[in-house]
């Protein structure tokens, strides 16, 4: 309760500053400066608090001792830094988990801007062989589309569908099928 009151006080104080109401702090509550930084000191109508941020860090060049940068394509793909995006049965829709995975993979693609990847669409064995080629195609394209919307250049992303040809788990149960309904990232150039 008490904490909530303090928070309320802080919020109202900040809101007051933002609204440009007269600052008359008879009781100075030592509010920890919000990330907004030092408050405006001019007497004139105070501008809204200026957000100060660090300059964007220069994208770090992969260092020589960077484990990923020094690995060969084969090594990279054998123990891939990319996480596959998984799909629901007979669906190419990106659910929340799949979107989170693609966002993380986009970050990796930004960090290694020379990497070119092939997004492989895969299906479980419960569909038919031919239809699964189309379903895998749509899964791969769905992931590519999302990556492009996140700012990754489309020419770094190829899509193919393996349908049900190459299951990652050869099992015949739901656990195996769930692993096999996926968009798998393969690094094809670095």
């Amino acid at each position: 309760m008490k904490a909530a009151a303090v928070v309320l006080l802080m919020v109202s104080s900040v809101a007051g500053a933002a609204c440009g109401r007269r600052q008359a702090p008879p009781v100075t509550v030592p509010t920890p400066p919000p990330t907004a930084g030092p408050p405006a000191v001019t007497a004139a109508p105070p501008p809204p608090p200026q957000r100060v941020e660090e300059a964007l860090p220069v994208p770090p060049e992969p260092l020589a001792e960077d484990g990923l940068a020094s690995r060969s394509l084969d090594e990279l793909n054998r123990d891939s830094p990319f996480t596959p995006a998984f799909f629901a049965l007979d669906s190419a829709d990106r659910d929340e988990a799949a979107r989170a995975v693609v966002v993380a993979n986009a970050e990796l693609l930004r960090r290694y801007p020379t990497w070119v990847v092939t997004i492989e669409g895969h299906c479980d064995e419960r569909g038919t062989a031919e239809y699964n080629l189309a379903l895998g195609e749509r899964r791969a394209v769905a992931v590519k589309t999302y990556l492009v919307s996140l700012g990754i250049a489309p020419d770094r992303l190829r899509t193919i569908s393996y349908g049900q040809e190459f299951p990652f788990d050869p099992g015949h149960d739901e656990a195996a099928w769930a692993k096999n309904r996926r968009a798998h990232f393969v690094i094809t150039a670095k």
Partner: peptide, 10 residues
Amino acid sequence: AGPIDNREVK
């Protein structure tokens, strides 16, 4: 031929 195991040719 490639880095991913258990992919049999047809």
